[in-house]
Design a binder for these strands. Structure first.
Lengths: 340, 340
DNA sequence: CTGAAAGCGCTAACAA
DNA sequence: TTGTTAGCGCTTTCAG
C-alpha cells in the first residue's frame, strides 16, 4: 500500500505539498496540484484516515447506537442515516444494543470511549445519566432520535400528542367502543413510549367522556404480538370493540390479520389506526400516523454535522425536541363507525 | 483525554511497559501489571485504536457491505454479524448499497480502500471482477454471504436445490397445479437468485411431468409485491392454482393476504410455500424453508476472523460454498392437496 | 523483566 | 507557493 511519501516522490514535491494538494487545505499552485493528483492516481494512493485523524483529531466516522435493526422504523432510520453520512464522506459504525446488558456497558466504556468517532447518534435509546456523562466527557457532539437526551439536540415526535390525535380521529368518526393495544406498562421501551401513548389515548377518551376500564391491552410491539392479542381479544363477539388504536403499525397489522381470520371485516366492522407509516399499511387497509423515520435520520445527521462544524455550546439543561411532521394517512377505504 | 504516557507516569513505568501491561503482549511482572492497570482505571484511560493500528496494521474494525437493511433476511444477518463481531472486540462499519450506482463505486474506490478495515464481509452483493480485484489488492480477508466470490470463502444456500425441494414438497402432497411467484428475470438480484429459484422450480415440475407454460409470475420481493401479484393472479377462479411456491417468505405473505381477501382459504384451498424462515410464517400458516440468516452471519464472522489469524492462502480460482442447513418447517396446519 | 528510542502515515506550524 | 520540522498516540525492536 502506497503512502503519501510515494506520491510526493513521484510528483517531485515534499510530503507536505502532496498533502495540501490532495486534501485541498492550504495553498498549492494549480500546476503542482494536478501533478500530485496524477501521481496519486497512477499508484492508486488513498489517504489513511487513521494516520490523518491522529494529527487532526477528526476521524470522519460517526458511531450509531440502536436497539433494533429488523423493526421497520429502526431499519428506516438506519438506512437514511447511513445514506446521509456517506454523502458527506463519513463512515458509520453500528452498535446494536437491544437492552441494558453487560454488552451495553462495554460499548459505552470501551468501544465508544476510544476517540474513534467524531460524534454519536443515539437512536431510540434512553441513556442513563452515567452514559450521557461518558459521552459528554468525550467532548464530541451527540444527537438523539426518539426522545430527549440531557444537554444535546434530539429529534422526536410527541408521543402523547400523536396517540391523542389518533384516538380523536376514531372518536370523530363516531366510535365509542375503542381499545388501545400497546406495549406493556411494566416492560417499558426507552423514553416510556408505551406509557406516553397510553396517556394520549386515555386523555382523548376521558375528554370525550368515555370510561377507561378495560380499554387497554398490552402485547409485544411486533406483528406476531399484535396477532396473538387480536386472537384473544377479538374472539369474543360480545366484548369486541368497533375500533382499535394500536401503538405501532406492526401491532396494528397483527391485529388486522387476526381480525380477518375471525371473520371480522376491516375497516367496516373494525377500524384500526396505528403509528409509523409502515409500507404495508395500504394493503391491510390500515390508517396510520406517519412518523417519517427517514426524515428523522437525515435531520439527525444534519444536526450532528452542524455541531461538528461550529461546536454549538450544548443546550444547557434540557434537550431540544424538534417535533417531526405528523401526517395522518387514510387508507383507500376509511374506517367507518359502527352501523346504528 | 488521557494518553498512555499519563498512565505510565502515574504508575511510574515507561510507556513501553504500560503498553505491554495493558495489551498483554510481552513480559510484565504481575506486580507492575496490576499497578499499571490500576493507574489506567483511575484516570479512565482507553487505548486509541487509531494510534495503535498505525503501528500494528490492525484496526479491529470490519467493513460490511449489504444491499438492504429493512428486508428481514438482511436485517437478521446484520444483527448476527454485529453481535459476533462485538463479542470479539471488533467494530462494524456498514455500507448500504442497494444497486450499482456512483455511490457504490465511491465505496469501493475510496471508503474500502483506506486500510481502515481488517477485513470485509459482503452480504448478498455480487462483486464485479474489478471490485474483487480492488478488495484482494488490499490483502485483507474477505468473506461473502449469499453467493460465491472469486478467490474467497463464502456462505450460501443452494438456491436451485432449495427451490426444487420446496416444489417437490408441494408435488409430494399431490398438487399438480402449481405456480411460482418470484423475482423478475429481467431485473436479477445479485447472484441470479431469481433465475436459480425459477430453475429449481422448473426442474421439479419437469421431473414430475408437468408443463411449464404459464406457471411463473414475477413481482417485487416484498410483501406488497406479493400482495399485488396475488390480487391479480388469484382473482380469476378458473386459472387459480392449488399451490404456490414463492421465492421468498415476504412474497408468500403478500400472496396469502391477497388470497384471504379474495376468500380463498389458506392452506386448505391454497398451499403456499416460501423460503427464509420468516417469523410471521406461523401466523400466516406458511410453510417455509429456513435459511438461518443468523447462522450465516456468525459463520461469516468466524471464517473471517480465522482468516485474520492465519492468513489462509486464498482458495485459488473458485470460491468455497459452505452450504447452509436447510430445514423445512411445516406450519401448524400443513398444506393439503386439492380435494378430489 | 523494564526502559529508551524509533517510527507507523499523516498534517500543521513555521520558514524560506 | 513550497519545503522543513515536529509530533499526534501508540507499539516494537533492541539494549540493559
Amino acid at each position: 500500500m502506497s503512502t503519501i511519501a510515494d506520491v510526493a516522490r513521484l510528483a517531485s514535491v515534499a510530503k507536505a505539498t502532496a498533502s495540501r494538494a490532495l486534501s485541498g487545505r492550504g495553498y498549492v499552485s494549480e500546476e503542482t496540484r494536478t501533478r500530485v493528483v496524477a501521481a496519486a492516481r497512477t499508484i492508486g494512493y488513498v489517504v489513511s484516515p487513521n494516520a490523518a485523524s491522529l494529527v487532526t483529531g477528526r476521524t470522519k466516522n460517526i458511531g450509531v447506537i440502536i436497539p433494533y435493526i429488523s423493526r421497520w422504523f429502526f431499519a428506516e432510520v438506519l438506512e437514511s442515516v447511513e445514506q446521509a453520512l456517506l454523502e458527506q464522506g463519513y463512515d458509520m459504525t453500528l452498535y446494536n444494543l437491544p437492552a441494558p446488558s453487560p454488552e451495553r456497558v462495554r460499548v459505552f466504556e470501551y468501544f465508544l470511549a476510544r476517540k474513534r468517532f467524531d460524534g454519536v447518534i443515539s437512536v431510540g435509546v434512553e441513556l442513563s445519566d452515567e452514559e450521557v456523562d461518558h459521552l459528554h466527557h468525550m467532548r464530541r457532539p451527540l444527537v438523539g432520535i426518539g426522545g430527549p437526551i440531557r444537554g444535546v439536540h434530539s429529534i422526536a415526535i410527541n408521543d402523547v400528542a400523536a396517540a391523542r390525535l389518533a384516538t380523536e380521529h376514531l372518536l370523530s368518526l363516531g366510535h365509542t367502543d375503542i381499545l388501545h393495544v400497546g406495549g406493556s406498562q411494566e416492560e417499558q421501551m426507552d423514553f416510556d413510549v408505551h406509557s406516553k401513548r397510553l396517556a394520549g389515548f386515555n386523555a382523548a377518551m376521558l375528554a370525550a367522556g368515555h370510561p377507561l376500564a378495560g380499554t387497554f391491552y398490552a402485547c409485544e410491539l411486533t406483528v406476531p404480538g399484535g396477532y396473538e392479542m387480536g386472537r384473544s381479544v377479538l374472539g369474543d363477539p360480545r366484548r369486541r370493540p368497533t375500533a382499535i388504536f394500536a401503538a405501532s403499525d406492526e401491532i396494528a397489522i397483527g391485529l388486522i390479520v387476526a381480525a380477518r381470520e375471525l371473520g371480522i371485516l376491516v375497516p367496516s366492522e373494525l377500524s384500526v389506526i396505528g403509528i409509523d407509516g409502515h409500507p404495508y399499511a395500504e394493503m391491510f387497509r390500515l390508517t396510520t400516523l406517519e412518523q417519517h423515520p427517514r426524515n428523522q435520520g437525515r435531520l439527525a445527521v444534519t444536526s450532528l454535522l452542524a455541531d461538528l462544524e461550529s461546536p454549538t455550546p450544548a443546550p444547557s439543561a434540557e434537550s431540544t425536541v424538534l417535533p417531526t411532521n405528523l401526517v395522518m394517512r387514510s387508507s383507500t377505504s376509511a374506517p367507518r363507525p359502527p352501523l346504528p
